[in-house]
Design a protein around this nucleic acid. Structure first.
Lengths: 192, 192
DNA sequence: TAGCTATCGCAAAGCCTTTTGCTTTTGCGT
DNA sequence: ACGCAAAAGCAAAAGGCTTTGCGATAGCTA
């Protein structure tokens, strides 16, 4: 299998998560990332992915059904949902760090392309690739609120003024985004 | 030609914009809108579009080259760039009306789907389907600024706090967007 | 009105994607 | 160890997308 640069993570949900299946999933995931970074999410096909992954196309068809489902699946879980959230003691600093983290993540062309692919297949279905981000925002605000430190912020405000601008620019004008921008947005929640 | 419900607008740029060419373009445009609203931007093909438009697939291939280019082209010019912008006398009211207008536009499933299609093919290339929106924001702010009425706003701020949240939600959670939301966002530029 | 040429329609060919039935491999429980 | 069953590989066939050459059509200009 080519391109196995990352350690093979355990498959998320499969009645048989052991060795080979996990290897196939990991290989395909890597292949998708590479190809999507090289050519964009619209110019790749399942046979291309399969060849790059050193896997039979049939396996990919049987596991995911089509390209759209596969990309959405990979994009959704790409930023580890179980990673620790910032907990600096103040909501403002937590949000700042969190925003920087998100910008850093999507600054990688691979992840930006995955985000665009996720955007294309969002809308109708309930699940999308940013659900986890919204959950995280709500958690941090709620945690601070329980301590009486919410600073008048709500999860909705965090979405509108932090996540939305970052995601918007990552999608449509990624060259205008860097970590300083994330910090300015976080500051904007408290100033003006 | 099926689906000719709208009046055929003149083709934008063609060395020969008269009758038949314009008709083909208009038919294809209608067909894309219908299909994209029915099935989403990822599940349509050029032969499908051509059949719906009553046009030969070859013509579509020759004019646009591929599906991506076609969708991006149609999505870019769909909100008429030459329509008059709000000019109520105050920047605040202009921006409020303008935001409502954008929300109204993208509340149509067709236009939301086109936006998602545009998002998928944005990024690397310089042109994208929201360039016109950014230009409009800059124009309104600049106009107010020339009259000394910019209220401390910049085009960037309008993008981050008006366009970005609207577009973000239209793409990822369209059911949370209505004209009231647009008004609240515009208010948010002045309050807090 | 006559000629020029851009553009369209048509048809065939090539290529790639996708499906399907079968065999082989291999993880996992006994 | 053994056997079951889930998942992968393989190969062939079907179906659909895309290209290409040629003839027909219809704007445009003189």
């Amino acid at each position: 299998m080519r391109g196995m640069t990352t350690t093979p993570p355990p498959a998320r949900k499969a009645s048989r998560p052991g060795g080979r299946s996990a290897l196939v999933v990991a290989s395909v995931k890597n292949a998708v990332e590479e190809l999507i970074a090289e050519r964009g999410s619209e110019k790749i096909t399942i046979p291309m992915v399969a060849e790059r992954a050193g896997v039979n196309p049939t396996s990919v068809y049987r596991r995911w059904g089509d390209l759209q489902t596969m990309i959405n699946d990979i994009a959704t879980y790409h930023l580890d949902p179980s990673r620790p959230l910032p907990a600096t003691g103040t909501l403002r600093e937590d949000l700042t760090q969190w925003a920087r983290e998100i910008v850093r993540h999507y600054s990688t062309p691979v992840n930006a392309a995955l985000l665009r692919g996720g955007a294309a297949s969002a809308g109708e279905r309930e699940s999308d690739c940013l659900r986890n981000r919204r959950t995280e925002a709500a958690m941090m605000v709620e945690r601070a609120g329980a301590a009486g430190q919410a600073d008048g912020l709500t999860a909705d405000l965090v979405i509108d003024r932090l996540i939305a601008p970052i995601i918007y620019r990552i999608i449509f004008s990624p060259w205008t985004v860097d970590e300083d921008y994330a910090v300015r947005l976080a500051d904007g929640l408290y100033a003006r």
